[in-house]
């Protein structure tokens, strides 16, 4: 049984989202939808916004991010550093609210372009073209791939790549289970499923709560010396659950999982200090993934 960490925190802005951001901007440029000087708009809980801000700066665009107010201060600082403007959306409802606010702004400002990571095929395509092939090149014996389910871009792109090239690879999603505030919808019809999501690509899907995510984040730090963000702890938790099942069945496996980002952006949340109970209380109500 072997677990392999794919260190996506080593990308230029420190997260896996650099791949999607660059691909979405390149695609829009190739289609002639955007040209330098234009304004881009994006709903984001942070990482995609930071990645887009970096690429936008390099390519000469202005970026406006709609971000829930219950995200860490470091995300605001990084977005500001890369020159993005931030519009905050209410904490209750989490990213759902950011999407709703951004869609409203896009309708009011027809000259702004929303690349829309949740429905932009270039997001998944980036992983089909790069993340998937890298995994197969480096780990031809791969049996399982585990990643976070946010926009679903990583899982859809890598999943489709393996469906074509090595169809027996299991594709496993780990989604963060936040505190209640984030699920504060007024009714169930306000729920949200990214347009990119195709359940048939996945083998299984796990919901991971903050305590398990924090525990695994700290284990990764203490055992392997990998300083990862909290969502990576959730992914590792799902990977270890799969590993336990495989081991019980007496099989061997090469399980690759994504380290989405480093822990730097979450230091202020209190996730890395005190007891696990204290850390859990500290991140309650925050969008930690």
């Amino acid at each position: 049984m072997r677990l392999w960490a794919k260190l996506e925190d080593r990308n230029p802005t420190g997260s896996v989202k650099d791949r999607a951001a660059l691909a979405m901007i390149r695609q829009a440029e190739a289609e002639g939808r955007i040209k330098p000087g234009m304004t881009l708009l994006e709903p984001t809980s942070g990482n995609t916004g930071i990645s887009l801000a970096m690429v936008a700066k390099q390519h000469g665009y202005k970026l406006i991010c709609v971000m829930p107010e219950n995200t860490s201060i470091e995300r605001t600082q990084l977005l500001t550093m890369w020159g993005a403007e931030i519009i905050t959306s209410p904490a209750a409802g989490g990213s759902n609210e950011a999407v709703r606010v951004a869609k409203g702004l896009a309708a009011q400002n027809p000259d702004w372009v929303m690349l829309y990571q949740y429905g932009n095929e270039a997001n998944a395509q980036a992983h089909f073209d790069t993340t998937g092939p890298e995994l197969l090149d480096d780990l031809p014996t791969i049996t399982h791939f585990v990643a976070g389910l946010g926009t679903t871009g990583t899982l859809m792109g890598v999943g489709r790549f393996f469906r074509e090239k090595k169809p027996d690879v299991q594709i496993i999603a780990a989604e963060p289970r936040y505190g209640e505030l984030v699920y504060g919808l007024r009714n169930l019809e306000e729920g949200f499923i990214p347009e990119l999501y195709d359940a048939s690509v996945l083998t299984s899907r796990f919901s991971v709560g903050p305590m398990d995510a924090l525990r695994r984040t700290r284990e990764l730090l203490e055992v392997e010396g990998i300083f990862a963000g909290i969502s990576t702890g959730a992914i590792l938790h799902a990977a270890l659950g799969v590993a336990a099942k495989v081991e019980q069945a007496g099989q061997v496996a090469d399980i690759a999982f994504i380290v989405c980002d480093g822990g730097w952006k979450y230091l202020s949340t209190g996730a890395y200090e005190g007891t696990l109970d204290e850390a859990e209380a500290a991140i309650e109500g925050q969008l930690w993934a």
Binding site: Y118, G148, L185
Partner: peptide
Amino acid sequence: ITILPAVAGG
């Protein structure tokens, strides 16, 4: 068993 509404990540 846990019931949750589908919400956005990312």
